[in-house]
Design a protein around this nucleic acid. Structure first.
Lengths: 129, 129
DNA sequence: CTTGACCTTCCTATCATGGGAAGCCTTATC
DNA sequence: GATAAGGCTTCCCATGATAGGAAGGTCAAG
């Protein structure tokens, strides 16, 4: 399987497959005589794992740990759970921050009549009242 | 006022002040004979505006528009409001996505006993069941 | 044997920010 | 007046994950 087919089969773009290989997230692919990367079912499975983890917002560093745990038969599920919950915490912190921004802005915007007059509490707030 | 003092007064780092100038977000600062940037109250006010807008998560492109509206006495508050609400929409879309990630992960983690055994529904999900 | 679709590597860009080096300027101290 | 400390300048590099593109090699079908 060439990289394009592996990309289709895994949902990871060829560009990203090469990138993941270059940073050591996934092992170097075998090559054909012409230098083309070769992928089998196993490699596609790894790529799918990576894609699912990315879809859940895991940073690449965390995916590296997840992959290591995945292939470690003696793993402790506690380690996986901790990784997951750390990520949940990070997500929720960002969510809280963004929610605060959205709330503030929505509040200001509600007080803005939004017509052709220049007076605007949003700008007033940004300029420090 | 040198750039360091302007940074302290505005809460924008000297590094970022130079960057904002280089991309044209703020006008080029006046210079002393030795080439040092000079800032006055007006410039600090602009920097504070930028910092508040950044704190609310506005991307630089939006801040550029906000600054233009701020200095436009004939502005329509509707334009400001639209900018703000567009940003709120962007924030809330990201929040929704991240909330979905966090919910999924928390759900999976709840089903993970998190002890020294290897069985883990999180890895099971990532590997495609 | 040509054409088109694929592959390779390498460079560039994004967005906002920080770190650091090399060299000049200013201010205070001796 | 010399020197040291600290601030300023520009320029380069790095982040994280992704995309775009150029130049050139390869494969398969016609």
């Amino acid at each position: 399987m060439n990289i394009g087919e592996a990309a289709k089969a895994s949902g990871v773009s060829a560009k990203m497959i090469r990138y993941y290989e270059s940073i050591g997230l996934i092992p170097e692919a075998a090559r054909s005589d012409a230098g083309y990367r070769n992928y089998g079912a196993r490699e596609v499975q790894i790529l799918r794992f990576v894609r699912r983890a990315r879809d859940l917002g895991f940073p690449v560093a965390a995916i590296q740990e997840l992959l290591a745990l995945w292939s470690d038969r003696a793993r402790h599920s506690a380690d996986v759970k901790r990784l997951a919950m750390d990520h949940v915490s990070a997500l929720e912190q960002k969510i809280t921050e963004m929610q605060a921004m959205a709330d503030t802005l929505r509040h200001l915007a509600e007080a803005c009549c939004g017509d052709d007059r220049p007076d605007c509490p949003i700008l007033q707030d940004l300029s420090g009242d």
